[in-house]
Structures are given as C-alpha cells and as structure tokens.
Nucleic acid binder design. Structure first.
Lengths: 115, 115
DNA sequence: TCAATATATAACCACATAGCGATTTATTCA
DNA sequence: TGAATAAATCGCTATGTGGTTATATATTGA
C-alpha cells in the first residue's frame, strides 16, 4: 500500500515529538502519575517557559493532555502507546550497545593477540 | 528505575532517526526488499547526496545495514522493530485523526442546530 | 477589585539539519 | 592502467528548534 504523503508526515511528526531528551524525561515522569506544569519544570531541570513549549509539542502530537485545574494545569498521558514504543526502542538500543560491547571486546582481545 | 541520562539520549537519537519523512519513505521502500542506494535515490525523489546522508543517520542508529557489493551498496533493514514502531504510531495517528473528524462533525452539526 | 500565583506566549540567540551541486573515493571492466 | 560508474563526503544555504529572559494571560482568594 502506498502510504500517502500526509500520513508519512504525521508519523514523522509523532516520532519528532519523542526525539528530544527533555520531552522523554517529562514522559518518564508522567509514567508514575499525572503532574502539574510546575512539578514537571522541577523534574525537567530547565525553565518553565521551555517546559511549556515542550508540552505544546507533546500535546499537538496527541501524546499528552492538558487539563486546567484552578490556577494550575494538570498534564497526563493521552496516548499510552508511547510506553510500548519506548520499550521497543529500549530493547533495540540495548541490543545495539551489546553489539558495540562485543565488538570492543573482540578488538581488545585482538590487540592483545597481535601484541 | 531512574533511566540514566545516557540511555535517554540514545532513545531520543533513535526516535530522531525516524522523525524525518524522507527517511520514513526510504524505510517504507525497504519493507518490500533490500535496495541499492541508487534505487533508493529514485524512490526518495531527492539528490543522491541527500539520500546518502539520510542513510548515514539510519545506519548510525542501527536501523539499517550497508553492504558494499561491487560498485553498489545494498541497504537492508537491520532492526525489524521499526515496523512494529511504525504500526503503533500509525494506529495512534489514525485514532487522532478520527477524534479530529468527530470533533469537526460535532461542530458542523452544532452549527446547523444553532442556525 | 486587586494582589499573588501558575502557565503560556513573545522575542531572541546559538546550533542542528535537510536540502543542493561539486568533488572525492572505491570498484569494476575493457 | 584507465575510463566508467556508484556512493560518500565537502561546502554551502535556509530553515527549524532548544534554550534563555521578559512579558502577557488567566484564575484564585483576600
């Protein structure tokens, strides 16, 4: 099936929302429970303005929901699929690192042999 | 478990590799079969130099493998997990679009009612 | 209503990256 | 060995994006 161009763009946008370490830290914190923007600002270790911008990216992608409650805004995960995604990627990255490690050990062993 | 910073960076890098429409087009083409850089250049509809750069991003992330064969280089998928990832994201995006559509219809219906 | 508080936005900077054409680097084959 | 071909890299530009501080916009509570 010829994926239409628009669909590909949407998928790219979704992945882009997940492609920043600060946003991943935010999502990792939300895994535990929903949190206010202020709490997330403490966790993300950057300015409140920056967190707000990241939250806009995540909510535009439909990954996160913003619920105003009084003077604060509660942020929650709107698309639980992200945790399946992250698990898959973690597995892939772990495999990758194992390969790197194996290669490194092979090279080290070889060096000793050559010496 | 407190995801270490380095792990988060690696995951972000992996998602970043998937966050570009041209790279997704390339991966979509590779779903069918492995292909040479030249074939991928035709499919991606951009310059050979650009495709080469995208392939570097994908192979650095461990998503794609490059196998020189004579004067050509054969590109193949090294991490099949990407197709699971893409399915999950496609589902999420589809749900998102359905919600938008529902909202649009609700608004239209409401307009008629109000009129 | 007004002060206080929490978010969001604006304006800006530094840097990353997708794109291009031109060039370099292999590799085959005559 | 050379010519031809395929892929990678270089140098460049335009745009996007993560970060900042300063400002604007609600919303509560006195």
């Amino acid at each position: 099936m010829a994926l239409p161009e628009k669909a590909i763009d949407r998928v790219a946008l979704y992945f882009k929302a997940l492609s920043d370490p600060t946003r991943l830290r935010i999502l990792n914190a939300l895994r535990e429970s929903e949190r206010s923007v202020g709490e997330l600002t403490d966790i993300a270790q950057c300015s409140q303005a920056n967190v707000s911008k990241h939250l806009r990216v995540l909510s535009d992608a439909g990954i996160v929901a913003r619920t105003p409650r009084g003077t604060t805004t509660v942020i929650s995960v709107a698309d639980p699929a992200i945790y399946d995604l992250c698990s898959l990627v973690c597995d892939s990255v772990a495999r990758e690192l194992e390969k790197d490690l194996a290669l490194h050990q092979a090279l080290t062993a070889n060096r000793k042999q050559v010496r």
